[in-house]
Design a protein around this nucleic acid. Structure first.
Lengths: 121, 121
DNA sequence: TGCACGAATGAACAATTATTCATATAAGCA
DNA sequence: TGCTTATATGAATAATTGTTCATTCGTGCA
């Protein structure tokens, strides 16, 4: 007797066990999934969306300027910038007392712009 | 006397008040920023990343199959699917007792694939 | 050295979130 | 009608997150 499907819904459209197994096996490994989630997580907060936007527009900016532009406390901005820094989304350059932040590459802006298109349609 | 810069760091590189004001003025309006953040938020969780991936690979799947593939409870899957549904990222089709979920458009996969490229490099 | 300024950080708190459990709805079938 | 299966949902809970406050670190300057 053939093994019973875990969930036999009795329709041709329904996929079989082999197919289920395949789908499960092809999911990217947990580390990759988490990397993807963490990357999207970076842009999942309005403050960080603005941060990225402002850095894209303004080029290199120091923390105090960013805080002024966004009308936020230096501390709040600094905490958020750290997240972007930890994920290598921004890079920093110290010059005297100032620390200048800028986007580390264009990738993030591709994602950002594509999303902007999506929400604007 | 000229108005003093909010934060005069005494370097040529430093932007002036007009520039600060411009950057602030050009930030997309709050609704757009929130839309962007919410869109990224949808893919900011490992479970939803897998959900989207599986729907992209498997086409149309019913809740029970998805739960089986992801080794998750039906309830947990259903709760997460609701979020994707609320944001119109997936669409549903009922057929008898089953509800089939599928991605509503290709946009989300463009975002997804671009991010996958990014984390895989 | 001592002071001032810009930036980073730890602790605390409120708000949000993902999951579980229990239950409700919806459809097919006896 | 009652029973079973598939799905949805509300309440509860644990975990995570964003901001504030207080403090510390790093640098330049008198």
């Amino acid at each position: 007797m053939m093994s019973k499907s875990l969930h036999d819904c009795g329709e041709k459209r329904c996929i079989d066990d082999a197919c289920l197994h395949n789908l499960k096996a092809n999911i990217p490994d947990e580390d990759t999934v988490i990397d993807i989630a963490e990357t999207f997580q970076l842009l999942s907060d309005p403050t960080r969306v603005k941060l990225v936007y402002v850095l894209a527009e303004g080029g290199e900016l120091c923390v105090h300027h960013i805080a002024t532009i966004l009308s936020m406390s230096q501390s709040a901005v600094s905490h958020q910038l750290r997240q972007l820094r930890n994920m290598r989304l921004v890079k920093t350059r110290r010059e005297a007392q100032h620390v200048y932040y800028s986007l580390s590459d264009a990738h993030i802006m591709q994602l950002f712009n594509q999303c902007l298109e999506h929400v604007c349609e």
